[in-house]
Structures are given as structure tokens and as C-alpha cells.
Design a protein around this nucleic acid. Sequence first.
RNA 1: GGGGUGGUAGUUCAGCUGGUUAGAACGCCGGCCUGUCACGUCGGAGGUCGCGGGUUCGAGUCCCGUCCACCCCGCCA
Length: 596
Amino acid sequence: MRTHSCGQITENEIGSTVTIVGWTNKWRDHGGVVFIDLRDRSGLVQVVFSPEIDVELHKAAHKIRNEFVLQIEGDVRQRPEGTINTSLPTGQVEVVVKSFTVLNECKPLPFMVDDETDASESLRYKYRYLDLRRPIIQKYMIMRHKAVKSLRAYLDSQDFLDIETPMLTKSTPEGARDYLVPSRTNPGRFFALPQSPQIFKQILMVSGLERYYQIVKCFRDEDLRADRQPEFTQVDMELSFVTRDDVIAIVDDMIKIVFKETLDVELTEPPVRLTYHEAMDRYGSDKPDLRFGLELKDVSDIVKDSSFKVFLDTLSKGGMVKAINGKGMAGYSRKDLDDLTREVQGYGAKGLAWMKVKDKIESPIAKFFPEESLKALTERLEAENGDLMLFVADKVDVTNDCLSRLRNELGRRLDLIKEGVYKFAWITDFPIFEYNEDEKRYEAMHHPFTAPMEEDLETFFSVDASELRSPDSGLRSLRAEAYDIVLNGYEIGGGSIRIHKKDAQDRMFQLLNIDADEANDKFGFLLEALEYGAPPHGGLALGLDRLVMIMTGAHSIRDVIAFPKTQKAACPLSSAPSEVDAKQLEELSLKLDIVE
RNA sequence: GGGGUGGUAGUUCAGCUGGUUAGAACGCCGGCCUGUCACGUCGGAGGUCGCGGGUUCGAGUCCCGUCCACCCCGCCA
């Protein structure tokens, strides 16, 4: 239907006759001459209808409206002097129409197809096909395609096999809530959509496929966020006969190539390596944004010499006092500080103490500190005149959590986050277990198939099982062969070396207080497979949506998903989820019991 | 489940301490216009003020409930 795409028509085509197709991006009817910007995926070109060429043609052109689909035959010519549009790649030329066909008309639009739409998201998603016509969103889709293409090519070059795993699979107890699918042929039974292909990819390793990958949808029925969708895409990988550093090296290599091929960005410095402990100590978070400093400092040892009751009480209860240096923030007013305090309290802290560093320390709590302590604090925090020291005292977890959020907030406020900067980090040596306060037991921080670190194996097997319910047991100190990759403060991937021996896996379930029957019921097929010569193996999954979001500079994961869901996990375009016929429910042996 | 913000024309928004004809811009429709590219210009149409209830002589405005969207907490790797 066409000889050229719109974006292709530049000076090189001057003098030739072309046929182009596309959408009417904009029409400008001067009564005499009529201009239309015709748009296809490749770009825009101006076409001109002139009464001097053909009166009938020119008359028909008055009827063209926005987003009409046109096929145009015409001659490419240099634009007359003074009418060149330098902000357009095709701005040197225009197409003089000799004939055209309206391939389709378009109703008045609910919003303008334009990069700078201010239409609300719900409207955009209801008419996502119009939203997707916007060049900026097309750019996101194209970038995503390029990233995927590059990932596949790389993984193929490293001998990974793309193998599909079931979408209709088995519900698992740990982790997120499952999306369930009722089985008609097995009344009362349900499939679950996979939260990840975890068990299947491990089985593929037992199967001797050695290197597996899949770019695959995963499903988690949890509440949404700007960076979370109920169905999302993982670049899922698993390798046999590898150590943690092998996996990390491959992923580093892969990321480097993807950034080069997709963004033409050369990642020169290798990702920072931090243990979980270091990350928590210095940033209070296992996904620190390393685009700026503002590190946290533990000042418990200094403030213990003060007479400030809040700090002392916290310390006596086993808590900690940590601080952050708000660079140049000593000018903050009482109200600014109250706002910051409220913000930190929203994260769970009881309060926020502060000291302004001026010629002397200005602070309501300064009087509780001996002179040498104040000096030690400013030294520890490397605080200079004009800085603001901010303190949180609480249980270790709360202190870290609050200060890491505060740190991110300060990073934004102090404008320390620069566009186009990509700071990667690997976080390693995660604890195996995490204590669940509500259920008074330990849970797997990563998942129950994660191998303990070599050095901790002995303790792993020897820990007294009676400590399983104690929040301070030796289980806390055990570390896993798990690793997360973090980019600009987002966790973009994570993985681990897996347990490949039955005895370790049994022990893991024992420590998680999952009895043998339950373990067999849920994961029996994996447990059994481990007994048939399972090789050492490990892997990782990258969150493709998040990765592409960061690469494109999009503000929400929804921007890089063609058909995203709203915060209520609904699809505004298709109106899913919807009610179903009574007959369908009957076939599935289901009865509804909706509590009003 | 909880906190916050928002919902008024097709769209984005304004609409004060409640006051009778609910506005603007863009878009849409019609006229004029031969060099625009955010075209210009003249005119016009267009409203269940999210929904339900209440207070009041009177509600877009106040109160209660509810729905939807977004951000966050919980939840989630």
C-alpha cells in the first residue's frame, strides 16, 4: 500500500513520487492550501493539498479530520524558502498530493493523540489503542522490544535454551497470594498461575538442560504500586554447575550489552558489591539508590554518653540510634522540620531528632550532650557549617527503614538524583530466614530452595530445633547464597544458588516449620527429583518491566506495558475482570458467596 | 484492610464564607482565509457538577455513605 514510510521522506527523496499511508496527526486548512501532518510509526511528514493541482482533490481535503487514515500519492519537493521546519526530521520537504484515499474515518477523539497529553490514566487506558499511537508510548514499546531482542540474543550466545513452563500449575503456600484457576475436569480443585517458574526451572536443571531461560509472565495477587502489576514479565534464568559469581558475571555482561544495544549507553563501572549487612548499615535498605551518598551512620556508641532519655531508653531496649547528614539543610525552619518529622513518623518512627550545625550546634536536645559528644557526632557525620544532622532512635529494623526512606526523600529534596545515571549494585549474603512477628516463626527471606552459604552449613544443620520460635535464635545469623541486583534504588532482579541435595532441602523445611507431609504435598515432585542426581545449580530472575521502565525514564511500570491494569487490578480497556454466566460457574462446581 | 489526593462540558481545569444564567482553554460543528506547522479569524453546539442520602427556603459548594482513579502503608521479591 505504500512505497515509503512517513519518517523516511527527507531531502534524499526530493523529486520522487511516493505513496504513503498513515494517520492525520494535525490538519491546517487555509481555505486555499491545506496542510496535513501524516503520521505513521516512523514519524511525521507534511503533505500539501493545493487547488492549483486539482480542484476536486483540494475540495475533498477539507473533509479530513484528526486521526483519519489516509493513503496519499504525491511528489516530494523541497519546501519553499522560509517555510522549513527545523524541529522536524522531515521538515525540509513536503509531499504535494496528486491523489488520496480515505482508508478510514475517525470519530472525535476522547483525548488528543500527542506526546504531551494531559488525559488521565484511566481515560488513556480505556482507549489504550489511541494512547499507544502517541509517539512517546510507541518509543517505550520499541525500546522494550529492543531490550528483549538483545536479551534473547545474548542468552542464545551463552547457550541458554528458551523452554516454556506451564501457566496452569500448582498453588504454593509460601510467598505471594496465588491467582487461582478452577479445574472443570477436577471439580473442587484449582490450578494456580505461576508466581514464577521456580520449581520447573530447577526440574529442568535436574533434567540436564544445563542452561534455561524464559521471558515469561508471572502472576501475584497482591496490591499494586507504581512499580508493581499483578501480571508482570520476568527474564527467568537457571544454570547448572555455577557459583554465585558465575551467575553475577553473566548478568553483568548481559546488562552491559542490553544497555549498549538498547540505549547506546556504555556502562563503564561494574556494579558495586555490598553484603546485605553493609547495605543495611550504610543505607538502611537492601535496595539502596547509589546515585547519591548521604550514608547513614550508627551513632549509638556516641549518644550513650548523653543524658537524652529517648536515646538511652532505646539503647537499653536493644535498639539503635542512627543519623544522616542533611547537607546544607541547616536553614530548615521549624515547620520544615515538623513536616520531615511527620513524614518519618509515617514510616513508623516515633520521632525525628535534629541538630543544626552552625557556629555552634543548634538543637533542642543539644543540652543533653556533653561537648565532646557533639564534636564526635559532627565528625562521624562529616557535618560542616550549614548542615543538618537528623537522628532516628528505634528498634534496628524501624530505624533503618525510616532513615532509608528519609535518605531517599533528602536525595530528591537536595536534587542529588541526575537523569541518565545508572547505578547498579549487587546485594549478597542475605539472611536465609526472616522472623515473622505475627506468626512467631521464621520464614524464608528469598524462598525455601535457597542454599545456605558454605561457611554457615555446619550451623544450618546443627542449630537446635527448639529455637525455631525464638526471635533471637541462631537462625538469624545464617546467610544464604542469594543475591539481588539493584538499579537506582529499584530491585530489578534476584536469585540464588539452590539447594540440590535432599538432606539440605529436608532440613530447610524442618527449620521453616513445614512438616514432611506438607512439604511432600506441595513440593514432593521437586524433593523427589533432588534424589535423582540433581546437579548444583542456581539462577536469577530480572523484572523486565521495571528494567525497561528505568531504561526509558518512564515514571510508572504501566507506561512500558502495552495493556496495563489499574490499582484495583482491572483492565479499563476490556473491563476485565467481569462476572460470568451461571452456567460457567455450574460447570466449574463453583458457588459464589459474596459478603456485602 | 488503612492514610492521602482527585472526580464539574469530549479533555484539562476554575468555580470564594451555600444564593438562582456553572465559566475558561483546548477539542468538536459551521463560515471566511494560498504557506501553515500550537495556523489565524468570526460564529455555534455542548453539563445527570461520579453515584445515593441528608441539612437548608436554596447545595457544584456543607454533612454522611458509596464507587472510581492515582500515590503511599500493610501486603508483595
